[in-house]
Simulated scan of single mutants.
Amino acid sequence: MADYTWLISGASSGQGAEIALAALKAGHRVVATARNVSKARMDLPEIEKLGGTWITLDVTSADAQSVAEKAVKDHGINVLVNNAGYGLRGVLEDLSMDQIRAQMETNFFGVLAVTKGAIPLFRERRSGTIVMISSASGLTGTPSQSLYSASKFAMEGASESIAEELKEFGVRVLIVELGAYRTPFQAAVDKPTDVISEPYKGTVSDKTAQRITAGHGRQAGDPAKAAQAIVEVVTKTGRGRDLDGIMRLPLGKDALHRADVKIKSLSDDVARTKDLAEWAVFDTPYDGYPPL
């Protein structure tokens, strides 16, 4: 079996913890990160029992990039999982700029900092996998979660570009788009009654937020199976044996449905606007810029 050593951000609970456990149970080495390592050790003693190592990492701290770079170098990391993040509930009008910036700081800028820490050694070794834990809300916008969606859209856009930048160095980027999974993630998000203002009561934003909150603890997604799927796709084993080369990995029936809806919507818009798009150019031959 190939040698895999994982660095997982936000591994102290939820999907990050499940990925750490799945990788350890598969016989890999894991460096799990948390903002509060003492608490993480108490909450998840099985990580160290299975041979995992904890290090402190706050993706929003000024030293996040250097901490990640040192971990990659010291532990021989060849799989980075950008899992740290949180959900923000509320329509754009109701959110303060401080809330908006904090959401992007963790879910987007923090991801970039950690990724920048890993890239140099991955590039030099001409190998490695960068896993971006995204969401179905990173492919289709969700009313009442506009900034959470924005943070995941931004991460996915950067990931597509990074994948092209690193492909010739043998480094793979995998975007995991999770549907609704039964983790503590939604429990940490404000309830609709706390954040949906009066003008939006009864609208699609309110109804969506209420539905998501009501479904907490009853989500169809099994986080242990999602973690196993991610490990198998990264290592090209089991169910992931024939999935080498994919960029996006939607997980959950709801994630698949939302992807299908997005594909249809995009396809319909492109088909309807084709003539107008082709008209809006100079009446000269195409000169090759920008490259298609």
Rank of each mutant, 00 (worst) to 15 (best):
D3V: 07
Y4H: 13
T5I: 07
T5D: 11
W6I: 04
W6C: 10
L7A: 13
L7C: 10
G10N: 01
G10K: 10
S13K: 11
G14R: 02
Q15R: 12
E18F: 05
V31C: 07
A32W: 01
T33R: 07
A34T: 03
A34C: 03
N36I: 07
N36G: 03
V37T: 07
A40Q: 05
A40C: 06
M42T: 15
P45V: 05
E48G: 04
K49M: 00
L50E: 10
L57W: 14
A62W: 08
A62V: 12
D63R: 07
D63A: 13
S66E: 15
K70F: 00
N78L: 11
N78G: 08
N78H: 08
A84W: 05
Y86D: 07
G87H: 02
L88D: 01
R89E: 07
V91Q: 05
V91T: 10
D94I: 02
S96E: 10
Q99M: 07
I100F: 05
A102H: 13
E105F: 10
E105W: 12
F108N: 03
F108V: 00
V111S: 06
A113H: 15
A113S: 15
A113Y: 09
T115W: 14
T115G: 13
T115S: 15
K116W: 07
K116E: 11
I119V: 15
F122H: 13
R125G: 13
R126L: 04
S127N: 14
T129I: 14
V131F: 12
A136H: 00
S137Y: 09
S137H: 08
T140D: 05
T142H: 08
P143D: 00
P143K: 00
S146I: 06
Y148A: 06
Y148E: 03
A150Y: 05
K152N: 02
K152L: 01
M155W: 11
S159H: 01
S159W: 00
A163G: 09
E165F: 09
G170L: 04
G170V: 03
V173D: 01
V173M: 12
I175A: 10
V176T: 10
V176D: 05
Y181P: 01
Y181I: 09
P184S: 04
A187D: 14
A188L: 10
V189H: 05
D190G: 10
K191F: 13
P192A: 08
P192I: 02
I196Q: 07
I196R: 05
E198Y: 11
K201M: 04
T203P: 02
T203I: 04
V204M: 08
V204Q: 05
S205L: 04
T208Q: 04
T213G: 09
H216T: 15
R218T: 12
R218D: 10
A220D: 15
G221Q: 00
G221A: 02
Q228I: 13
A229R: 14
A229D: 09
T235A: 14
G238M: 08
R239K: 14
G240Q: 06
R241F: 03
D242A: 04
L243K: 15
M247K: 13
P250M: 14
L251R: 01
K253Q: 14
A255N: 02
H257K: 13
H257P: 00
R258Y: 12
R258L: 15
D260Q: 12
D260L: 06
V261L: 12
I263N: 05
L266H: 02
D269P: 00
A271M: 01
V281Y: 08
P285W: 08
G288C: 09
Y289M: 15
L292P: 00
